[in-house]
Design a protein around this nucleic acid. Structure first.
Lengths: 223, 223
DNA sequence: TATTTATCGAGAAAAGTTTCTCGATACATT
DNA sequence: AATGTATCGAGAAACTTTTCTCGATAAATA
């Protein structure tokens, strides 16, 4: 049988990382609109407010599967729904965080902002000082308990917020515990087996971009 | 006079954001090599360890102005030097941070890791509770003092780590105080005058990318 | 010294992303 | 009802970024 079959669940077409990164911004903006009672919105408007090309907005939104109406735009509620379901924010993903420092506290805190599909269900640290002192309602557990808990709770995502010199150790433990993806905030490249997804969050990389833009801007208008 | 002049300082060719974001990773890796006593390194090796295409590594490094030697590669020390001077990490940029929460604490802390051209010289908050309780050695100042201090210290960069609902207010104050660029960690789009540079740091955008990769990976190898 | 190999640099090719163009459509206005 | 306008969707074009190709070069090896 050489004829291709049309599956009911269409082959997930590739979504560019750039588009993925813009979707949360649209979502946030749309939530604001909905809160102010706005019912429909056009790509032109979104683009104007978020400083993006309207066509790009349209393509990004189309990627989530929504269809709009000419001259009108999209119903705000439908758009929010479309983005949320496309990004899988309905079935929340559980995650563990390793390294109970300030950054972990910030993440545990911000999470309460809304349902973005991420639930950090437990935090771990190897410092006995930190064990048992809850941060934003989450208890800090000793790192030794991570593997058994990860297995029992079927955790797929690990977040590393340890200092750089403890990051590889944390990654090894997460991988050993059956984690499939690591969100790494430590400024250290991780070595992981084939098939494990690593998303590095390099804050200094962002600063470099900012500082470069500033240098260019200041250089263009000299004293 | 229509003939173009060759200036001594060459016109800064445009560097892509992607390249800029990779440079800190190279730098970090090279620092590690230098620490282990390695004297020279090739693009092939860097690419292998950082999981990047060797040609891409070569192009990125070439952008900083360094030239290598066939069969040998680049002297590690020269590369580090080249990246640092290209990114302007020699003349450190001073910055203010607004919002003395956990994220601010994390940034103030990590900064001590090394010289990456950023010095957060003061932190501000409007909560009187936080004033006067230093975080990682930096005192927290009342927000009212920001404008005069910014002018006196010629600060160009402001970092916003407030909650979302205070972010616009913080941005307005920074702009009023003469700041040229804002690094915004609050999950809120800022409205600023023409000419002010805003770099939004949306942590959930990164999570979206991670979660999407995971979904694809898990979907590709079904049960 | 000749040959082989690893690597660079530069330009070409390929792939990916953003912006433009245009026909179609829905609502508003005359 | 006819005309005008804002907007969508889709495909083309422009632009950017990444990957490939190839000649040149420096060191190692025969």
């Amino acid at each position: 049988m050489t004829t291709a079959q049309v599956s009911t669940e269409p082959v997930a077409k590739h979504i560019s990382e750039a588009t993925l990164r813009r979707l949360p911004a649209y979502h946030h903006y749309l939530k604001g609109l909905a809160h102010r009672g706005r019912e429909v919105v056009s790509c032109s408007r979104i683009g104007l407010e978020l400083r993006l090309d309207p066509t790009q907005v349209r393509k990004d939104l189309a990627a989530t599967g929504i269809v709009g109406r000419p001259k009108v735009g999209y119903p705000v509620a439908d758009l929010i729904e479309s983005i949320e379901s496309f990004l899988g924010w309905k079935n929340v993903t559980d995650a563990f965080i390793v390294g109970a420092g300030n950054l972990a506290a910030a993440l545990l805190h911000r999470q309460s902002f809304g349902q973005y599909g991420l639930d950090i269900v437990a935090a771990f640290d190897k410092d006995p000082e930190k064990i048992g002192k809850p941060i934003h309602g989450k208890n800090i557990l000793p790192i030794e308990k991570l593997p058994s808990l990860a297995a029992r709770m079927h955790i797929h995502i690990g977040i590393i917020t340890t200092p750089a010199d403890a990051a590889q150790e944390a990654a090894d433990l997460l991988v050993y515990s059956g984690i499939r993806a690591i969100w790494n905030f430590a400024p250290a490249p991780l070595t992981v087996p084939e098939g494990i997804i690593v998303q590095n969050e390099d804050l200094f990389a962002s600063f470099v971009v900012l500082s470069n833009k500033l240098k260019t801007a200041l250089g263009a208008v000299p004293a």
